[in-house]
Design a protein around this nucleic acid. Structure first.
Lengths: 131, 131
DNA sequence: TTAAAGTTGATAATGATTACTGTTTTTATT
DNA sequence: AATAAAAACAGTAATCATTATCAACTTTAA
């Protein structure tokens, strides 16, 4: 892996990803940072997110309406995606442990990561009862 | 839901999706059918796949290299996605049952579907040992 | 300080998916 | 069968997320 220089924008992008529980898209991160960093470019956000992925510092959760959603929390946990509003929520799920590698042992598949996704209607949307 | 007329192309698309275990992309289905149906258009494949999704006749499995992969088998089962070749495999997994609705009961989340995805290296790719 | 290496903004390019439009096919009704 | 309304289609253009390019700017190590 290549060596990286210090970059204040890279730090700001990583901090933004880690300090939210919205499981943001690249564009969301860009729009949140833009007011404070007016010369930030969307390409820089994409470039650095790709970097974090390669380094294993963040993970991809899912794709909602064509947008990739990421998570700065790489500890084992599941996610709930609302079919109405598209919000992504953390689910503390005992089914996921770091020891998933044994689950497919003997099958020839080498498991590197495991994801559990629930899809449905989130509490907010079911209260609204918009049909 | 709107009423649909008979369409031989729609039938061919659905049959192709159901008769393969490759978890195909829209383009894959198009390229498989094109030799036999020379006047088939890619837009028609996308349009009908969207229809099948709305009807619940197929499901979306994941997104590999920017391409959505679908499955004509909607019975509960998990999937393994190879990080090298991008192939998607069926996993018969006892963790998934049709009764996942109770798992998040009392949390306010209404679960409509549940997916387990394993990512790693498939048997073929680990044999090849290409670095 | 300086030069090599890394980073960036702006912009163009790519590629999957969707929208549009005039034509063709299907269906329901004579 | 003839026909008119509805649905489906091919072909193409448009959209939109993401990636690539490149000249200018920063960081680093000496």
């Amino acid at each position: 892996m290549a060596k990286h220089n210090f970059s204040s924008k890279r730090n700001a992008i990583y901090d933004m990803v880690c300090s939210t529980d919205t499981h943001p898209s690249a564009r969301w991160v860009y729009e949140k940072l833009k007011p404070d960093i007016p010369d930030l470019s969307l390409g820089t956000v994409y470039r650095n997110i790709a970097l974090f992925k390669n380094e294993g510092k963040i993970r991809v959760v899912c794709n909602v309406n064509g947008e990739e959603r990421i998570d700065g929390d790489i500890t084992p946990h599941s996610h709930f995606i609302c079919n109405k509003c598209g919000n992504v929520y953390d689910i503390c799920d005992k089914q996921i442990t770091s020891d998933f590698s044994s689950e497919l042992s003997g099958t020839g598949y080498i498991v590197e990561s495991k994801f559990i996704l629930y899809y449905g209607i989130c509490p907010e949307c079911s209260e609204k009862k918009i049909h």
